[in-house]
Design a binder for these strands. Structure first.
Length: 276
DNA sequence: ATTGAGACCTGTCGGC
DNA sequence: TGCCGACAGGTCTCAA
């Protein structure tokens, strides 16, 4: 469940509890998590105070009083629970942070694609960048120009490019399809094509950048304001009617780079320019 | 240098 | 009911 909006919702839920909290004890309940080494990780986190809980792309970052930052990624199936101090562990509870407040933050991850790591705070941004993390879509610096720069020289289709965290951080399989539908762009459009102006008044890159921020902001809103489940424009709606006003299309599901893409073949017809 | 395929894991759901 | 394959919101690595 975790793309940028879900991770942001988790951050907003945990921040009031974690920020300023003192970590009493860390329990590593599984020895072979991907980057979380027993005896190092737990002992370096225990005894610290959480200064701030931030987010970068799909990463949650907890800055600790020790000068380290706890880097957390939910992978495909990771989640956190807030529990009272003495609770019954559930299957796949891998890490438990006991706080002196008497509460515990529990990390649960059945598929174990998640990551929990520790790195010096001053090195975090550099390290994430080096690991291939691109611009933050909800920051002012992100716009059509930034998107076009990332898409400039790839031959992949735009849907596949949007999943590349180096081009934009935080987009996953749901919101890639959602943003393309809002922008009325075909998921098969070569990514490089959006770097150039099309026939519409605004270049495609600007339209798509706007659609990305709109879709992500709206999702954060919905996930945060207890509205419950959100409705997707196209994701997981194969065979259903397109929701765009006046569009009679039916949503199609195709596979790109091994992953499902959903789109409306009628209103997302925008093709590459003949000139390209 | 890019790009696609496979690997990494467990759970769920639909079909026979 | 039970088994089986397809698929799941994400990265990694490896080989073409």
């Amino acid at each position: 469940m975790p793309e940028l909006p879900e991770v942001e919702a988790v951050r907003l839920e945990l921040a009031p509890i974690l920020e300023g909290a003192h970590v009493d004890q860390v329990l590593l309940r599984r020895a072979n998590l991907r980057r979380t080494f027993p005896g190092q990780f737990d002992s370096r986190v225990a005894g610290t105070t959480v200064l701030r809980l931030r987010r970068r792309g799909k990463y949650l970052l907890a800055d600790l009083s020790s000068g380290d930052t706890l880097i957390m990624h939910l992978g495909m199936s990771g989640s956190f629970r807030i529990e009272p101090a003495h609770h019954h562990p559930e299957p796949h509870d891998h890490v438990v942070f006991d706080l002196t407040s008497g509460r515990a933050i529990v990390f649960n991850d059945p598929r174990r694609f998640g990551v929990m790591d520790l790195i010096a705070t001053r090195d975090v941004e550099r390290s994430l960048r080096r690991g291939g993390l691109g611009p933050e879509p909800l920051s002012p610096a992100f716009d059509g120009a930034a998107l076009a720069a990332g898409c400039g020289r790839t031959r992949r289709p735009i849907k596949v490019a949007l999943l590349d965290q180096a081009i934009v951080a935080g987009i996953g399989n749901i919101y890639a399809s959602e943003a393309l539908h809002l922008a009325r762009l075909s998921p098969r459009l070569p990514a490089a094509a959006i770097a150039f102006a099309d026939r519409s008044p605004r270049p495609a890159a600007h339209r798509l950048a706007g659609a990305i921020t709109a879709v992500l902001r709206r999702a954060v809103d919905q996930l945060t304001t207890a509205e419950g489940s959100q409705r997707f424009r196209v994701y997981d709606r194969g065979g259903a009617a397109c929701l765009r006003r006046g569009c009679a299309g039916r949503i199609r599901r195709i596979t790109q780079a091994g992953r499902s893409t959903y789109y409306c073949p009628v209103c997302q017809r925008r093709r590459p320019l003949a000139a390209l």
